[in-house]
Design a protein around this nucleic acid. Structure first.
Length: 220
DNA sequence: ATCCCGAGGG
DNA sequence: CCCTCTGGAT
């Protein structure tokens, strides 16, 4: 492994801008794969997405939202019925418990509306910082922060954008490197790239359009 | 047979 | 920091 001097200041910003530019060129139609219009549906789908592909989530949501179209309805739902519907997404007992508590708290303390506020969101069951940023960015159009899931975390590290491992520190490192209006989109771009090419198990550096500017690229 | 990679709890 | 929860993908 080659030791490399970390990029800083203007050089780091230029590196980040180039990554942003190339990812946009690579995935011009990038969008959230959890394509739900209302905050309730997006929050629920995002809670379900832990340790699970978006495709799998999208297979259970029609039934889920048919039976419980809003927080009021979901708050009334028997736990085991929720479990049954979301079973195939994995961790279904935890997730059903989160969903129940989330819906109950949304009804009891937010009048049935998912709050558009980071501090309020992260106190809700099942909503951590990642989920909160997804909801703010995609349901409310608020670029409150960068969505840091482990794809973003991994890419940020491999691209040499930060050496931090704590998601909050990764987020703090990333935010000043990119224009605020791009934070949500950039997160999607990195997630897409992480899933398709720069995956955790076997990154396809040979097929990667960013390999020439990636400090971690392993080319044959 | 192993790994995935979010939230919560110890 | 550590660990657990689960079905699915590989």
């Amino acid at each position: 492994m080659t030791r490399r001097k970390a990029l800083r200041g203007a050089a780091l910003k230029a590196h980040a801008a180039e990554i942003h530019r190339r990812l946009l060129a690579l995935y011009p139609d990038a969008h959230c794969e959890l394509d739900y219009r209302n905050p309730y549906e997006l929050a629920v789908a995002t809670i379900l997405s832990a340790q699970c592909t978006d495709k799998r989530v999208n297979m259970v949501t029609p039934e889920l939202f048919r039976r419980w179209p809003d927080a009021e309805a979901l708050a009334q739902a028997p736990r085991e019925e929720i479990e049954q519907v979301i079973q195939s997404t994995g961790f279904y007992r935890n997730k059903a418990k989160s969903l129940s508590g989330f819906a109950t708290q949304v009804v009891e303390t937010h009048g049935g509306e998912v709050p558009a506020d980071m501090d309020a969101l992260v106190t809700l069951p099942g909503i951590g910082r990642k989920t909160a940023n997804v909801v703010l960015g995609n349901a409310y159009g608020i670029n409150e922060g960068v969505v840091v899931d482990t794809h973003v975390q991994r890419l940020a590290r491999r691209f040499g954008l930060t050496k931090e491992s704590d998601p909050v520190k990764v987020e703090r490192a990333l935010m000043p490197l990119f224009p605020r209006e791009s934070w949500t989109m950039l997160s999607h771009l990195m997630i897409w790239h992480g899933r398709r090419t720069c995956d955790a198990r076997k990154p396809k550096c040979g097929d990667c359009a960013l390999a020439d500017i990636c400090p971690s690229a392993e080319l044959p």
